[in-house]
Design a protein around this nucleic acid. Structure first.
Lengths: 221, 221
DNA sequence: TGTCAAAGGTGTAAAATTACACCCTCCGAT
DNA sequence: ATCGGAGGGTGTAATTTTACACCTTTGACA
């Protein structure tokens, strides 16, 4: 609502051409296929991963429920809190779609933060925005029942597409792990949505038919 | 585990005497009684609240469940993400115990962040650490059943006291809102803990009797 | 092309949680 | 002193969610 729109991109755009070139001359471009592991939990933080395109999931990959923490879309840094608060990544990152990633050098990045006050302020704004968003996401999911949580997730995905028809690059099991309910609950709620004419779904492709009622369930369900 | 120990205090200690004096000459000291509202959701961010002593709860104070986001202990900033990501506070802060708070001037704080690279790096580390901690807290609670979540909360409180006997400055209803279960679930689990000889409780005072079993429930329950 | 595993899907039983009803106690205000 | 509300507490019924069992579809690949 009153949230300031921000992203990792905006924050990098503060840099001067010289600084930008310095950062990118110490960086590498990497491509990942859907399903590939990008960051393994516990590995040391040597680089900063900037997601140029694609969708990434962050997960704790540990017993017992292997919850998915959050999803990242393009323009975001991957696990930016870990870079400055711990020496190791505290979760794993996996590509859900084809992903293009820029591996920025952590030392150069840190040097620029120290030297350029405007950049460090923009970066502080960015991580505040990311964490605020994560907090809201978690709180919204927590207060919902299974139908509401599923509807909420579908609506959130829709925001990243132009059309009401799109693909959710997740299995039912993965959706369950994101919203914190069982696989069967996801399937049953999805079946209910179909029966009630709210959405049409076939495998990973989904079409929202009655957007306003779906949003209502997402909000109050 | 491998988490770097940090706090708002450490981050302020980076400042030179001159900078520290500048920050504090533009600040006010405030005291709050238990139960008093410190920050109202929606109010503009003009100052930065530094919690010198006491315990504060952050809540969304909105329908339907009025969840409590997290608890802050001394040495923390209150709602530090909001200061740099939005113009308004996105939650309310309430004193659970007597609290002593320093109201730092936002403009002076921002100026120091821009001018002092070491301070801004320490601040970035601090907010990363805070958010990492929040994320872990939420994830740990989410994967637990009602008994596990209650045991976890009791253990977390214990960490802030020297003894196994202490006061939890929350009603049963508030505990319920923190761990995301109903008031009755809290009461029933607490009764079970008493029956099984894990804890002794009387109103707000609680004594942990079998710490290892309680921790086991907190971990695996 | 056939096979096999992974994913989608559904009904029913079991388990966990909530909601409701109701009680008691404490404490502040009239 | 007593009234009334808030908080603590507990049993039972209703609801929600999960677990299990089982079936079908799909797609990779030998």
């Amino acid at each position: 609502m009153e949230q300031i729109h921000d992203s990792g991109k905006n924050c990098l755009s503060i840099l001067s051409t010289k600084e930008y070139n310095e950062l990118y001359s110490n960086s590498n471009s990497l491509n990942f296929e859907a399903g590939e592991l990008i960051v393994k939990k516990g590995s040391p933080v040597n680089n900063i991963y900037f997601l140029k395109s694609g969708i990434v999931e962050l997960s704790l990959d540990q017993a017992p429920k292997n919850q998915i923490l959050s999803l990242l879309f393009n323009g975001e840094f991957i696990g930016i809190n870990c870079v400055f608060s711990t020496a190791q990544y505290r979760f794993s990152a996996r590509a859900l779609t084809k992903c293009s990633i820029e591996l920025l050098d952590k030392e150069t990045f840190t040097k620029l933060l120290k030297e350029n006050g405007a950049f460090s302020m923009a970066f502080i704004q960015y991580i505040s925005w990311v964490n605020e968003g994560f907090l809201n996401w978690q709180m919204k999911l927590k207060e919902k029942n299974s139908a509401g949580a599923l509807a909420f997730l579908i609506c959130e995905f829709q925001k990243n597409f132009d059309s009401n028809s799109f693909e959710i690059p997740l299995t039912r099991q993965e959706i369950a792990r994101i919203i914190g309910f069982s696989k069967e609950s996801v399937l049953k709620n999805l079946a209910d949505f179909r029966k009630e004419g709210l959405v049409d779904s076939n495998g990973k492709s989904i079409t929202i038919i009655d957007a306003s009622r779906l949003e209502e369930i997402a909000k109050y369900g």
